[in-house]
Design a protein around this nucleic acid. Structure first.
Lengths: 179, 179
DNA sequence: CGAAATATTGAGACCAATCAAAAACAGTGG
DNA sequence: CCACTGTTTTTGATTGGTCTCAATATTTCG
C-alpha cells in the first residue's frame, strides 16, 4: 500500500543490530511513501509516523500496472526518482565527508526549503516536529552531539529552534555553512 | 552526452573545498553514465575514468525525448532509478551508522557481486582496478585507515586483495561482517 | 634502471561517542 | 491549578575510532 501524506510527518529508517537507527528520508505532507516499494516489495526498511497522520491510500499493484501502461505515469515516476537520486547522492557526500555541523545545517536548510515549498513557512519560520534524536538519526550523529552542535548554530545566530519551531534569519547564510 | 560503458571503470564524485573527494558511484562495464543528467543537465558532480575506457555515446536529448514518447523506455528508466535509490539508501545508512570495517566489507562485497553479475568473476576472484584512495573516497575514510582496515579483513581471511586482484573465499561470511 | 604512484607503519591529535546525571518540558488525572 | 510521570534537552567527564602528519617500503611503469 502506498500513501499520499496529506497531513503530518513520517520517516523511513533502518534499525541496526545494536538498536540504533538511521533515518534515510523524512516524509512531509504532499509526499508519497513509498515508491521504492514498487520494485522492492519486501521492505528492508520501516516507515513510521512521527506525528498523527492523514493520508490517502493507493493500491500498490494498481500503480505498478499503471506504470506499465501509462507512459506519462512511468515518465513522472522516472523523473521523480532521478531527482531523488540526486538529492540522496548529495547526502552520501555529506555523510561521508562533511562535519557534524555542516550536516546539521544542511538538514535544517533542506527541511526548511521543503516546508517552504509546501507553503507552510512564513517569515523565515516554520513548525518542525522533530526531536534532537530524529535529527541525530538522520545525520549519523548522537543525540548529545546534536544538542551541542545545535547550540553552536544558535550562538552564531544562524538558526533558532525552540519548542518545535524553527526560525532561519538568513537562509543563504545557513546554506553557506554547509560547504 | 550519455555513455554506455563497454570496457573499463569510471567514478562519479564530488570535490570538497579542501580538495578531498567523495565518490558516490562506480561505473562498471555495462553501466550507463549518467541518467541523472536527464533531469539535472548542470552537473554538480564530475565523472571521470579510472581506467582506459571504451564506451558507446548517446545523445542526451534523444533519450530525453524518447522517454516522453516510448512507454517501455520511461518504464525501464523508472525501474532502474528506483533500484538505484534502494541501493543508495543502504549506503546512506552505512555512511551514517556503520563502522569503517563494515563499510569497507560492504563495498568489496557489493563490487564483487556486480562484477560477478557481469560474468567477470571466476572462482571467487576478480580484477578490481581501484586504489586504496578510491576505496577511501567512497567509504568516507582516509586512505591510511583503509590500509589498516583492509589488513584486519585480510588477517581474518575474509578477503585477499593484492595487485588489483580481489579474492573472496566466502561471500556470505564477508556479508555477515557488514551487519 | 629510475621515477612516480601506491601502500605500509608509527605517533600524536581531535572529533564525536558514550555514560551518567540534572534540568526543562509536555501531558495526565485529580 | 497542581502534583506526578515520562520524555526531551542540557551539561560534564571520559573514552575511542579515525584523521593527520611524516617517514619508509613496495609496486608500477616508462
Amino acid at each position: 500500500m502506498l500513501l499520499l501524506i496529506v497531513e503530518g510527518w513520517a520517516a523511513r529508517y533502518s534499525t541496526m543490530p545494536d538498536g540504533s537507527r538511521h533515518i534515510s528520508h523524512f516524509y512531509l505532507p504532499g509526499d508519497i511513501c513509498d515508491l521504492g516499494w514498487l520494485v522492492a516489495p519486501l521492505a528492508r526498511q520501516t516507515i513510521s509516523a512521527l506525528t498523527p497522520i492523514k493520508a490517502l491510500a493507493m493500491d500498490r499493484e494498481v500503480l505498478q500496472q499503471g506504470m506499465g501502461e501509462d507512459p506519462a505515469l512511468a515518465h513522472s515516476v522516472a523523473v521523480h526518482s532521478l531527482h531523488q537520486l540526486e538529492s540522496q547522492t548529495e547526502w552520501m557526500v555529506s555523510l561521508g565527508r562533511r562535519s557534524a555541523a555542516q550536516r546539521l545545517a544542511q538538514l535544517l536548510h533542506d527541511l526548511y526549503r521543503r516546508i517552504e515549498g509546501k507553503g507552510r513557512a512564513h517569515h523565515g519560520a516554520c513548525a518542525l516536529p522533530l526531536s534532537q534524536q530524529h535529527l541525530a538519526d538522520f545525520t549519523g550523529m548522537s543525540a548529545v552531539h546534536v544538542c551541542r552542535t545545535l547550540r553552536q548554530l544558535k550562538d552564531l545566530r544562524l538558526i533558532d529552534l525552540r519548542r518545535r519551531q524553527l526560525t532561519i534569519p538568513d537562509l543563504s547564510e545557513l546554506d553557506a555553512q554547509t560547504r
